[in-house]
Simulated scan of single mutants.
Amino acid sequence: MSKGKVVVIGSNANRIETKGGYWGDTGNYLNETVVPMLALIDAGYEVVLATPNGAPPTIDKASDSPAHFGGDEQAYEHAKRFWAEDPSMKGRTLRSILDEGIETYDGIFIPGGQAPIVDLMQDQELGEMLRHFHAYQKPTAMLCHGPISSSAAMPYAREFRAALIAGDEAKAKEWSEGWQYAGYRMTVFQKSEEKVIEDTILHAKIYFDMPYALGLAGAVVDTGPDFEPYVIEDRELITGQNPRSDHPIAKALIAALDRKLGHA
């Protein structure tokens, strides 16, 4: 008997545009996706993966390494098998979750990798989901680049993203008005961490950094030391800063679900 149901939101993006018109490979981080999913399952929760088009996400190549599992080869191989073979990873469309009834879900989790910058942060169906979770104060967790997906809840999410890419700060602020998370404390992959990815993996600059975008929209962004675990909870929202926050955010999300559903 499941304690409750959590929808995990994956991205379908497998490349990201960078300054100068270059494209880099992207996807969802393996550990950021699988570690919390396995923790939720172990805690007695059912997990359902959904993406905009229903296809499973691509593993970000930068995450396909035992290094993201503390060097534990066995944990890494287990995660790879889970991603490839577990029924939880088959994927459904966001639309199918809404049609089924988002009210039947008790929590939502959005992992990172840079992919959410491409599609999730402007996805209208995700925005509908996030507005439901906010209205009912249901646990909402986002990790690394995942917190940028919170902009999907804006009335004009697509316009907000376009203004950020255009470097039009005034327009971005204008399009972000009415955002449900304005005033929330949150964390996200910070600029100095992003620079490492830009310099060593993308070899190009992305159009905007995450703390800047969320701060512009009215979030109170707080970040810890680079590549060290850091998680913030504010009301229903739980955010983690970077890949190493995978275990702490899973623990925080499970605790929040247990409290909300009376399992604590």
Rank of each mutant, 00 (worst) to 15 (best):
F109L: 06
H203M: 06
E194C: 03
G183C: 05
W23Y: 15
I110M: 12
I148H: 13
L253P: 06
M129Y: 02
E103I: 02
I117Y: 10
W179R: 10
A79D: 08
V8G: 01
Q74E: 14
N12T: 13
Q190I: 05
Y184P: 02
Q124M: 12
F189K: 07
D209I: 00
D226M: 13
A163E: 03
H68A: 13
A75F: 04
N53E: 13
F189T: 06
Y156H: 15
A252T: 09
L130S: 08
D246L: 00
K138S: 11
E228W: 05
D246H: 08
Q137P: 04
P52Q: 00
W23L: 11
A153V: 00
A182I: 01
K260C: 03
R158C: 01
Q241W: 02
K19Q: 14
G44W: 08
L40M: 13
L30P: 07
P248C: 14
E236C: 07
L261S: 10
F69R: 04
P229R: 06
K5Q: 11
L261G: 06
A39M: 07
E233R: 14
E125L: 11
I9Q: 02
I9C: 11
Y22Q: 15
I148N: 11
K5S: 10
T51V: 10
P248K: 13
V35S: 11
P147V: 10
E125I: 07
T104A: 14
L164Y: 03
M89V: 00
S151E: 03
I206C: 09
L214M: 04
I232K: 09
D25Y: 06
I197L: 14
L164R: 01
A43D: 10
M210T: 02
I148P: 02
K260F: 08
G215N: 13
G54K: 08
L130Q: 10
V196T: 13
T18V: 11
E228A: 11
I102C: 00
P52Y: 01
N53L: 05
E228S: 12
H78Y: 03
Y212C: 06
E125M: 05
A170L: 05
P155M: 05
L164N: 02
R244M: 09
S96M: 02
D209L: 07
Y230L: 05
A163K: 07
Y230E: 04
I110L: 06
R244K: 12
M142F: 15
E85S: 12
N242I: 03
N242R: 04
E228K: 14
P155D: 08
G44K: 04
Q74D: 15
L143W: 01
R81Y: 10
Q137S: 14
A152F: 03
S11G: 10
G4K: 08
A13E: 04
F82A: 00
K205M: 02
A219K: 00
N28A: 06
Q74G: 12
G10R: 02
S150L: 15
L120E: 10
T33C: 09
G240I: 09
M186S: 15
A163Y: 07
